[in-house]
Amino acid sequence: MPAAPSSVPRRPLHRRALDVQVFARDDGLFDVEASLTDTKTHDVPLAGLPRKAGEPIHQMLLHLTVDTTLTIVAATSETLWMPYPGACNEHGDAYARLVGLSLMKGFRQAVQERLAGTRGCTHLTELCQILPTAVIQAMAGSVIDTREGDAAGNPPFQLDRCHALRRDGETVAKFYPRWHLTPAATAS
Rank of each mutant, 00 (worst) to 15 (best):
R25W: 07
A110Y: 06
A74I: 00
G149A: 12
P132Q: 10
A53S: 02
K174A: 15
F30R: 00
Q59V: 02
A134W: 04
P9K: 07
A134C: 10
Q129F: 13
P132K: 12
P45V: 13
L101S: 04
W179K: 12
H163T: 14
T146E: 01
T37V: 09
I130D: 00
I130V: 06
I72P: 07
V99T: 12
P45F: 13
A152L: 15
I72C: 08
H42I: 10
E33T: 09
L181T: 15
T186C: 09
K174G: 11
L49I: 03
G54E: 13
Y95A: 04
C162Q: 10
T69V: 06
R10F: 10
A173G: 10
L159R: 07
T41Y: 03
M82P: 04
G86D: 05
D19L: 02
T125G: 10
P56D: 11
L61Q: 09
A47C: 03
L62T: 02
M139G: 02
V73A: 05
T122W: 01
I57H: 08
I130K: 00
G28N: 08
A17F: 01
I144P: 13
G92D: 11
N154L: 06
L131G: 01
R11D: 11
L29K: 04
P2H: 14
Q129L: 11
Q158F: 10
T146M: 10
P12S: 08
L101M: 15
A185C: 10
L61H: 14
L61C: 04
D43W: 01
V172K: 10
